[in-house]
Design a protein around this nucleic acid. Structure first.
Lengths: 318, 318
DNA sequence: TTGAAAGCGATACCAA
DNA sequence: TTGGTATCGCTTTCAA
């Protein structure tokens, strides 16, 4: 009816009619049913499905915050999916969220199950793969090259004189960004004549306490580790605390390097050696690419958001 | 048609028909359109709108994780809204999310704008208000009594012998849980013959660095503050770092008390004096109440999730 | 400028 | 056990 036109403000009605309609709307406390709108026609929904591995990891919380702020500001909503780093969780979530006819999807990571890939291709909606930059994405991608960031850190530590290096991280059932970092890191260390003597991948969350006890385990093996690279700053901070609790000097007795440059790194007195990644900006960029695509603006297939090594003072200087 | 029955598995069809339908489904890569399902009838949607103030605060990230895990496990999805601690953001988000006919809403906080309240009442869907326990909620509530938790901390610090106490937190445009804590805290301190001499409410996020520079500001006033209570552990940790950077002994020269018992508190060597709140459990409880209500099980109107004082070693012992 | 009619995909209800 | 028909709220198209 005419009311529909008025509510959409698309013109083709008189001012008097408009007033009458608006009055009724206020009167009845009418709220539109967008289900019906989307259902009725070609109108895209304003949902965007967003999959995130977990929120215990501050990194991803920041990414999500960046995404949702930007989407929300432009009238879109995030439908959240926590995949717990598994492809099966992701696949189940994709199936469900697609049935809600989302305008698009933002997925963390570049590795998806075969069935997920098939659904994604059939869906023919915009998809942004984030975090792990994919230069031949399903559709669009924004993130960084994790292999390279690990490589740069490895080269830096070797340059500082370290040769016998350890790694503490967590493991999940699939290839992921953290393992790409470790691969790049190992490559650089070996290229430089060192070895990643001991790599500890805990079945735990990538947070403070696992960093603490992982360090204890790693150093307990008796090998002469000179420096430890951690999956992220939270774990590195846990490791730092462990070392200090044992009266080990950092970097005198052992070097500590994190990754991600989390907010905590700004206050620990000494600057943690780390790799800066603009998490919030990454999330915002993902949302921007999605929104641009949805309004048919040209969008590059991928965007490298970059990283920057932070020398810090928890490893000895070259 | 018959296919609909088969897909819902509600019986009333032959095995042969079922097989034929399923074959076609696989064949066509058919995905149901839940928009239509919800739209069609009384069937409730599986969305739950979840409003969260911000994710930079680890506390809320954990709450959201608890909610989404539990909802997801039972076939529901969270539609996220980041309200940035403002009622107007919340109101806008409520209007939008209601138009998607959600099964229910989970809202952080007990204070809502008048227009939001009106929409919420008209919606006649289950609503869980979390975080700030509301004994006469719109519908259901789960959380803790923040006033009481502040009061307990105040009484404890007074019991430790502190009289001239400071507070560092952040401020937002509305009454909120943190200010209830401060109210309760002040009451207890005054009851015990002390004063909350200086209260600093920064216009910033409640994270590490504001805790650091807030402490600098607070101590810079020259008043003889003996102990500082912080809005949360992240801020307290920032304060702790500030004090140590100035070679002040904690608790010798100054006492530090946080709130929330965040994961970081477990690794900082000394135990941070804090208040334990089961954030993840709180989120899960909210999701459970929502799901119970949606399946017409009896649900209490509110649930106190409790807190527990952690004496720690960053304040002097009584 | 307005309204009447068809249709989106699924379900409820009946009839075959 | 199966399938036709009306229906949900809105948009699109066409006619008045």
């Amino acid at each position: 009816m005419t009311a529909s036109r008025v509510l959409r403000g698309e013109g083709g009605y008189s001012e008097m009619t408009r007033a009458k309609v608006m009055e009724k709307v206020d009167d009845l406390g009418y709220l539109p049913n967008r289900l019906a709108t989307v259902f009725a026609g070609d109108k895209a929904s304003t949902f965007v499905g967003v999959s995130i591995p977990d929120l215990g990891n501050e990194v991803f919380a920041q990414v999500l915050e960046g995404i949702d702020r930007k989407l929300g500001a432009l009238g879109h909503q995030s439908v959240l999916g926590l995949t717990q780093h598994t492809q099966t969780e992701e696949e189940n979530w994709i199936k469900t969220v697609l049935s809600w006819q989302p305008a698009g999807l933002i997925l963390t990571g570049r590795y998806h199950s075969p069935r997920a890939l098939e659904m994604l291709r059939n869906a023919s909606i915009p998809i942004v793969e984030i975090w792990d930059l994919n230069s031949s994405p399903l559709d669009m991608s924004v993130g960084i090259n994790h292999f390279d960031s690990g490589f740069d850190m490895g080269r830096y530590l070797v340059g500082c004189g370290y040769r016998n290096i350890g790694y503490v991280g967590t493991s999940h059932d699939t290839a992921n960004a953290a393992s790409s970092r470790l691969d790049g890191f190992s490559k650089a260390v070996e290229d430089g004549g060192g070895t990643v003597a001991r790599q500890l991948c805990l079945h735990d969350t990538a947070t403070y306490y696992p960093g603490f006890y992982g360090t204890e385990q790693l150093l307990g093996t008796g090998q002469d580790i000179e420096c430890i690279f951690y999956q992220n700053d939270a774990m590195a901070f846990g490791g730092l605390q462990y070392c200090e609790s044992k009266a080990m000097k950092v970097p005198g007795d052992i070097g500590i390097a994190g990754w991600g440059d989390l907010p905590i790194a700004a206050v620990i007195g000494r600057r943690l050696t780390s790799m800066h990644v603009p998490h919030l900006k990454l999330g915002q960029a993902a949302a921007e690419m999605m929104l641009a695509r949805l309004s048919d603006e040209p969008v590059p297939a991928f965007r490298d958001i970059g990283f920057r090594l932070i020398p810090g003072s928890t490893v000895k200087q070259a």
